[in-house]
Write a protein that binds this DNA or RNA. Structure first.
Length: 239
DNA sequence: AAGAAGGACAACCGCCCGAGG
DNA sequence: TCCTCGGGCGGTTGTCCTTCT
């Protein structure tokens, strides 16, 4: 028996937001902030929407200083490098890019960056070894994933690159503890069920693959990452 | 010109976790 | 200590737009 839904889905509007709804939500947020409760917000604001939907709309679209599209080469490098180090921890990756949201980064990765990486790898592999007909296994895994609808747990690249973290608390401390770099050594190899051994077994990535990817990406492969650009509470609440 | 296919991205779903009672 | 609730996250789906045939 699952938990009760956060709202009555039959009685709330779903789908794309209208400009009118955006105006209502934005003006309410500018005047009151979230009030510490997203679930109650739509009722207070006079919106016939789920609280989570309001939250998502605000964080990913209406929030001030949000940038859409136009990812720079430098941002590409940061995203790729962090993906190598952290896996699909989009919120953390997004925190390193001012004005970018996790959803934005995730979409960008899934639609463009992943393909770009695969293309680059093919070209590079051919340059290095003309007789080679396929990219390294790791990048092949990306290609496999892009063609499948496998779940997260069976995603080969997630498996390889995503040392499961024991808790979001750990992630927060990881971010806060950073003094300008994201090190793979700060990531706990833990499968989330208390077995670190399983986590270690997941670290199947060879040095060759990591080196290859770093070389491929250039930029931040083995260098220090720029510090995360964390949003302050006031920025988030906009109150 | 019309339909199909693919790309981009907004939005939803379901799960996990921490806080608080 | 247990339970409930809300926030947050990552994966997936839906929709619109553009390009191709």
């Amino acid at each position: 028996m699952g938990r009760a839904p956060c709202c009555d889905k039959a009685n709330v509007k779903r789908g794309p937001w209208s400009p009118e709804e955006d105006v209502v939500l934005r003006s309410y947020m500018e005047k009151h902030g979230t009030g510490g409760n997203w679930i109650a917000l739509p009722q207070k604001a006079g919106l016939n929407r789920c609280g989570k939907s309001c939250r998502l709309r605000w964080l990913n679209y209406l929030r001030p200083d949000i940038k859409h599209g136009g990812f720079t080469e430098e941002e590409d490098n940061i995203i790729c490098s962090l993906y190598i180090k952290l896996g699909s921890r989009w919120s953390i990756i997004a925190s390193h890019l001012r004005g970018r949201t996790d959803n934005d980064v995730k979409n960008y990765w899934n639609t463009k960056l992943k393909k770009k990486l695969i293309t680059s790898s093919n070209n590079d592999a051919v340059k290095k070894n003309p007789s080679a007909t396929s990219p390294p296994a790791l990048l092949h895994a990306v290609a496999v994933k892009s063609e499948s609808k496998n779940s997260y747990t069976s995603d080969p690249i997630s498996k390889l690159y995503s040392p499961p973290l024991s808790s979001s608390n750990h992630l927060s401390s990881m971010i806060n503890d950073q003094e300008g770099s994201v090190s793979s050594s700060t990531v706990t190899a833990d499968d989330g069920s208390g077995s670190s051994k399983a986590g270690e077994e997941d670290m199947l990535l060879s040095e060759f693959d990591l080196g290859f990817l770093s070389e491929l990406l250039g930029g931040y492969g083995d260098e220090e990452m720029p510090p995360p650009l964390l949003w302050t509470a006031s920025e988030l609440r906009y109150s």
